[in-house]
Design a protein around this nucleic acid. Structure first.
Lengths: 331, 331
DNA sequence: CTGAAAGCGCTAACAC
DNA sequence: GTGTTAGCGCTTTCAG
């Protein structure tokens, strides 16, 4: 575009402005900002000061263009898997952001009816995979690096520590004196739901004995509406528990609505614990928080490791209990 | 939300490859691809051929870097407005894609509790605005260009033709012989819901006379669950209509579920028309389709016009009826 | 109508 | 440790 080299700083500050301000070279600024080794601590500080003085923020497009690795990563979503769920939207948001600034090129790889990615990429992020997902074996056979979002031993994967989450929920509820519990979840054969259930069940068994297992209500529709209908149907001819552990915040919200319509006051007559800590969906909900940002960040790390041929590791991300307004002592 | 996975391939052809293949210069390729004037038709064709032969797709990052305008556009979402709705997610996806490739820099501008954008940008996209939204007057007073996603005369705005949509729904249902109708919607004082209702009501009045207005069920929770609960409550002591016009697909899905639980068979005993044509949510649903891609595209056009100081225009995008499986002749 | 070349802001060699 | 510089892929003057 042959604009004349402008010396005037108009618009957004560039790395050059920072360099001038800190009286160093652009290379040094870049190194300092990217935490590269071999920058004098003092220099580093000067650069940092200049950055905040100028309100500088690196340009993503330029960054991407400069560091781009010659690889394409495909996003493979299980055939028929819903992409408009909060979990998905939130995770993807973080993932795409991170991928771009890692210089990785993303492509949405459609999966054929056989569940296999239909296009070639250098690496793949597998989403919504079931334990026996054919895509896994397929990619392994191909020797193409991939990261599974979800947990599976022996596979490069990352997921929240679902077992621990289930345990935390159980322990929280037990601590509050609840003994009559219900677990509302999705297909328990899936890894996430299975593990959450396992953690929950084991903590219960440890505290109350094997014979006091909590009943499980499986929803095939994982929306708030699905949970609502399932719970109302369930409570039509089953005694109401004093506490519910819902395997996702959405399910929890559905339970909350059902409770409201049944005249069960939360948390006094019914306590509810969710899972995820979704913004908007479950404000005020006691829940097990998982970190979407970390999930995306680790996914990218693993992707890079896979591309380098590093040894496989399966990462479990810690989760926390967020005690908010939907749980209380057994009434 | 982040950019949508770009369609680009890696190891992928660059503009230079295309130039070589078509035996022209890169400048010419660029001009041809961007429909710049002054490219010989034959040359244009050669370039197009080379593009498809090579499967070339321009690199968004490079494009953005090269054409970037020195402006920042803010995204202002009404305080407390939900961002995880399908409508929002879908629209934003398209918008961010388009903005990036228009060289526009997007920033998420948080709105303070007063509903006003808290940061300065050169232009603003207003989302989730109510008719009396203070942000509008505020931006007008500031003289800062903005685009309202939604309709409002005298304001640079873009929205689906909601009135026409309501009319189409009514006409479709009338054509099928329905006379006992119910409209399920959100706050009718909002522009979109208000207009959809108006179109619906007017078409009904024109066909059946003023005295045969359809009852309106207002949901304050606009999710599928919200509609489900509202409709069940409503039908507890009101006669069932033979057809429902739901103001969004989500509301329609809630109605469908309620009908199922009440033993009302769709479409034989109850017809349901939605609005939006959301993927995943309302498969198989008869609905009024609005074009999210166009919505985003026009938003950007208007933004550019605003930045140039062009006269204000308020765009109405056409909508279509998609007759699918949830409507039938009155049983 | 077309080609050549200068940058967009950044990173990563390569020198010093 | 730090400066210099060559690009990343694209658009857009400026010549011809």
């Amino acid at each position: 575009m042959a604009r004349r080299p402008s010396t005037a700083t108009v618009g957004r500050p560039t790395i050059r402005d920072v360099a001038r301000h800190a009286d160093v070279s652009v290379g040094t600024v870049s190194r300092a900002l990217n935490d590269r080794a071999g920058v004098h601590p003092d220099t580093r500080r000067r650069v940092r000061d200049a950055v905040s003085a100028l309100g500088y923020a690196p340009d993503e497009a330029a960054r991407e263009l400069a560091i781009r690795r010659p690889v394409a990563v495909g996003l493979s979503v299980a055939h028929g898997h819903r992409r408009l769920t909060p979990f998905f939207v939130l995770f993807l948001e973080h993932l795409l952001d991170g991928l771009a600034s890692s210089g990785l090129r993303v492509r949405d790889v459609p999966t054929g009816p056989d569940g296999l990615p239909t296009e070639e990429t250098d690496a793949v992020v597998l989403l919504g995979a079931h334990p026996d997902d054919p895509r896994i074996a397929h990619l392994q056979a191909l020797g193409r690096p991939f990261v599974l979002v979800g947990h599976r031993d022996g596979v490069r994967s990352v997921a929240a520590d679902d077992v621990a989450g289930g345990r935390l929920a159980a322990e929280h509820l037990l601590r509050l004196g609840h003994r009559s519990l219900l677990h509302v979840t999705g297909d328990p054969h899936g890894q996430a739901f299975g593990d959450r259930h396992r953690g929950f069940r084991e903590a219960l068994a440890a505290a109350l004995g094997e014979d006091r297992a909590a009943p499980v209500l499986v929803c095939d529709d994982l929306t708030t509406l699905g949970a609502y209908r399932a719970l109302r149907r369930y409570l039509a001819d089953a005694p109401a528990p004093t506490a519910i552990f819902a395997a996702t915040d959405e399910l929890a919200v559905g339970c909350l609505a059902a409770a409201a319509d049944l005249g069960l006051r939360v948390p006094h007559e019914l306590s509810v614990v969710g899972f995820d800590d979704l913004p908007e969906i479950g404000v005020g909900l006691t829940t097990i928080r998982q970190d979407f940002g970390a999930l995306a960040r680790v996914t990218i790390e693993l992707l890079l490791e896979g591309l380098r041929g590093d040894p496989v590791r399966a990462v479990r991300l810690p989760v926390h209990l967020l005690a908010r307004g939907t749980t209380a002592e057994r009434g």
